[in-house]
């Protein structure tokens, strides 16, 4: 690796990717290193894909504050992101990829393997078990440490205590458990990254902008797939459904529509998985399941 180790975190707003990066930097600095942590500054909201970054060096001053395009390490907090974002974009040959997934090493490798070391851990299960909430950031720190050794596991305890107070103990537990359970596949040179096309938003030139930056294609936000944000999706039990439309009424995305048979069906393309439809259903016909 280089003098400066560069790490990119992929998560969703509210999942704690930014906190992970912060905790890692605090730990590295406590160990006497030079380190940096920062989010990709943007308007992303709870559920939307977000990125955070770290730079760590043993002694070389870190001067760049630019977003990391060619990371040494990539950490993916949400398995749902693998299909929608090119998380390994720019990941260096011989780098490390750490993924939260319940699918196991072999399957994940077949989906997203490449010329890098791969570590997989079911951080969501660990978090549900220990924290009782699917907040995976501390577990993923454990997996990261196991796969890379960028910091020592013990050094993390104090920053966790400072950050989480009363809840620090269970977070330390989640971290250690992930450290133990993460499975690692070593780097084998020459492996090719799987070809896959990801959605990209075209960037306009200044000449393509309307006068005054006016938008005339009304409702073109429809092309933006908020459905990628969800970690849970609604499933309807037709036996219980009375076709009242209460779910559609209260959906903040206005994405539940009546189908030919009269059932109210959530549009996967937009559904963010908030669970309001399930909660407000009169008859309890809707349940939320992992997306």
């Amino acid at each position: 690796m280089n003098d400066i180790t560069e790490i990119r975190w992929h998560g969703r707003g509210g999942q704690g990717a930014v906190t992970s990066a912060e905790l890692l930097a605090l730990t590295a600095i406590k160990e006497g290193n030079i380190a940096q942590a920062f989010p990709s500054f943007g308007p992303e909201r709870r559920g939307a894909p977000v990125i955070a970054f770290n730079r760590i060096s043993a002694g070389k001053p870190i001067r760049s504050r630019a977003a990391i395009a060619e990371p040494d390490i990539v950490v993916v907090l949400d398995p749902g992101l693998l299909g929608i974002i090119d998380v390994t974009r720019g990941l260096r040959d011989g780098g490390v990829l750490i993924v939260n997934s319940s699918k196991g090493l072999a399957t994940v490798n077949s989906e997203i393997g490449g010329p890098w070391k791969l570590a997989v851990v079911d951080a969501t299960a660990i978090a549900r078990d220990i924290l009782k909430r699917p907040i995976v950031n501390t577990a993923m720190l454990g997996a990261l440490i196991k796969a890379t050794g960028v910091v020592n596991l013990e050094s993390l305890t104090q920053p966790l205590e400072e950050r989480f107070g009363k809840l620090s103990e269970i977070n330390v537990q989640a971290c250690s458990k992930a450290y133990k359970e993460a499975v690692v596949m070593e780097y084998s040179p020459g492996v090719k990254k799987a070809e896959k096309v990801y959605p990209i938003e075209k960037s306009l030139s200044w000449k393509e902008l309307n006068l005054g930056f006016v938008v005339t294609e009304m409702g073109n936000a429809r092309s933006y797939r908020t459905g990628y944000w969800k970690s849970e999706r609604p499933v309807r039990d037709n036996a219980k459904c009375i076709k009242c439309g209460m779910c559609a009424l209260f959906c903040p995305e206005d994405c539940i529509h009546q189908d030919a048979e009269g059932y109210f069906e959530a549009d996967e393309f937009y559904c963010k998985g908030c669970g309001i439809c399930a909660r407000e259903c009169w008859t309890g016909a809707i349940t939320m399941v992992e997306a």
Binding site: G13, G14, P43, E44, R45, R46, G47, A48, G219, A221, R222, S223, Y224, R225, T226, W229, K230, I242, C244, G245, M246, A248, L249, F250, C251, P252, E253, D254, C255, H257, Q258, D267, F269, Y270, K272, G273, C274, G275, I276, W282
Partner: peptide, 30 residues
């Protein structure tokens, strides 16, 4: 209980907006 079906399907504020999951402000605006 079937009143929800009477609400117009027309959207002046379209899906694809980027409010947080479960946002009550976006719902009010809808």
């Amino acid at each position: 209980i079937y009143a929800p079906r009477l609400v117009t399907k027309r959207q002046s504020l379209t899906p694809g907006h980027r409010a947080c999951s479960g946002c009550g402000e976006a719902l009010a605006l809808k």
